[in-house]
Write a protein that binds this DNA or RNA. Structure first.
Length: 430
RNA sequence: GUGAUUGUAGCUCAGUUGGUUAGAGCGCCAGGUUGUGGCCCUGGAGGCCGGGGGUUCGAGUCCCCUCAUUCACCCCA
């Protein structure tokens, strides 16, 4: 066993997998830009109060999952961000973004931290990409955000994902519904588990989320939030559904979808993958008009956003074989040096090849020719360029095509020209 | 935080009712080919059998503790 290993709930991403990340990130950047969203990067830690206020103190995230620390005994408590939205909203309010323009469309890719017990699809450090649309939360804005998310999935080739959607209504709707739920569940108080008993007081909506099999029947009989929506909430929701239908985005209405974060209102949605096991939510989001006020803003900033778990997305893609066609990042030419005293000459040639934009590899460990050829083969170089006494005296170099095994003898200029042509056919990956 | 699971070579795993120097496949390195890879053949390196304690003449194997892993619950991406 190694002396040190990665901290519980964290993992290393080695080059092969890193290529998959880069691929997905590139698609995210491309589509976000296509839909008019601009990237924002916020700090990985914030004042703890930001999350307490923003996410809600009744949530599990704030209650037990935050990595908090106090760098200065007299200073304020800080917390590694457990989600992105609060930080983005804080940044927008701090810079007074909405005074420069009424609408801002931001997206991000970043790491988050939650002190949970790791399991399949759950880590203590994980990544999300997402988008936040600030300044409007009209049905068109909600649909825009959902559409962007679904288009990214689609472009990556994902299939079999399920979009579930619900309306949580406005503040008044929820208040009335909350009372109705408490009225319904209170007679069954003794049947409820501990967590649900607590939620009955603080946030009865979350009882609906429970997976406890003993409660399923009881939950099924509970009043529906949808029946407590006022006309304008219903119309708002219907309009969102209309846009989705127009864009051929399939959805299921799930009247019990409430989602864990306190700040959501009206439309809430979640995308699940059957490929994932117990933690099957790959992304989710909704409207959060109340967040800005919660963070101390004097005006309400209507807002809507989504977040997608990178690891879960990658896991699903892997399961669906979507990385099979990913181009590998192999060198075009491997410079093979015949003997020790020619190494410096080989290094000089490798440098010239690289300056010409040709991806070149050369052995830095002074191994045998056979070892160099084996290495060239192992890393799937397309060509081998031999540096031997013959080449050095005649100025003509042996270039072997490692795929066809054909070998030709060319001047260095001809080698450069030929390889440069090849390099243009398969440009360097970023 | 709760429950279960698994820790033997770089990786995937064997290891019989406790019994001598702990094995295989793949990978790695070298040689077969002193200027040429893949395939094949031969050889080699590499293990405090997760750690600690106990039972026993004897523990990879049995018992206890501990650390770690994985999965699930809670909850979430």
């Amino acid at each position: 066993m190694p002396q040190y290993q990665a901290v519980k709930g964290t993992r290393d991403i080695f080059p092969e997998e890193a290529a998959q990340w880069k691929y997905v990130e590139r698609v995210v950047h491309t589509f976000a830009s296509l839909y008019g969203f601009s990237e924002i990067r916020t700090p990985v830690f914030e004042y703890t109060e930001l999350f307490q206020r923003g996410i809600g103190s009744t949530t599990d995230i704030v209650g037990k999952e935050m990595f908090s620390f106090q760098p200065d005994p007299k200073g304020r408590s800080l917390t590694l961000r457990p989600e992105m939205t609060a930080g983005v909203m804080r940044a927008a309010l701090q810079k007074n973004l909405l005074s420069s323009a009424p609408v801002h469309k931001l997206y991000y890719i970043g790491e988050l931290f939650r002190k949970e017990r790791p399991q399949a699809g759950r880590q203590r450090q994980f990544s999300q990409f997402g988008a936040e649309l600030l300044g409007v939360s009209s049905p068109a804005a909600v649909a825009e955000v959902i559409t962007l998310m679904m288009e990214i999935f689609d472009s990556l080739g994902l299939h079999g994902l399920k979009l579930r959607i619900n309306s949580l209504g406005d503040t008044e709707d929820r208040l009335r519904y909350r009372e109705a739920l408490q009225l319904y569940f209170t007679p069954f108080h003794d049947i409820l588990d501990e967590a649900s008993k607590e939620r009955l007081e603080k946030n009865p909506l979350r009882i609906l989320d429970s997976k406890n099999p003993a409660l399923q029947e009881l939950i099924a009989g509970a009043p529906r939030l949808y029946d407590y929506l006022n006309d304008s909430s219903v119309q708002d929701f219907e309009k969102v559904l209309f846009y989705l239908a127009e864009r051929n985005i399939a959805y299921d209405i799930d009247y019990r979808l409430v989602r864990g974060l306190d700040y959501y209102c009206n439309t809430a949605f979640e995308v699940t993958s059957s490929e994932l096991g117990a933690q099957d939510a790959i992304g989710g989001g909704g409207r959060y008009d109340g967040l800005s006020r919660e963070l101390g803003s004097s005006v309400e900033v209507p807002a809507v956003g989504f977040a997608v778990g990178m690891e879960r997305l990658l896991m699903t893609m892997e399961k669906q074989g979507l990385f099979a066609l990913l181009d590998s990042d192999n060198p075009l030419v491997y410079v093979v040096v015949q003997q020790q005293d020619l190494v410096d000459h080989g290094l000089q040639i490798a440098w010239r090849l690289r300056r010409a934009g040709i991806k070149t590899e050369i052995d830095l460990a002074a191994r045998s020719m056979k070892a160099q050829m084996r290495e060239a083969n192992r890393i799937s170089a397309s060509y081998a360029l031999f540096i031997g006494t013959m080449e050095c005296t005649t100025g003509l170099y042996a270039l072997k095509n490692l795929v066809t095994s054909e070998q030709t003898t060319l001047s260095l200029e001809a080698v450069l020209e030929l390889l440069r042509e090849q390099a243009e056919k398969e440009p360097l990956k970023s």
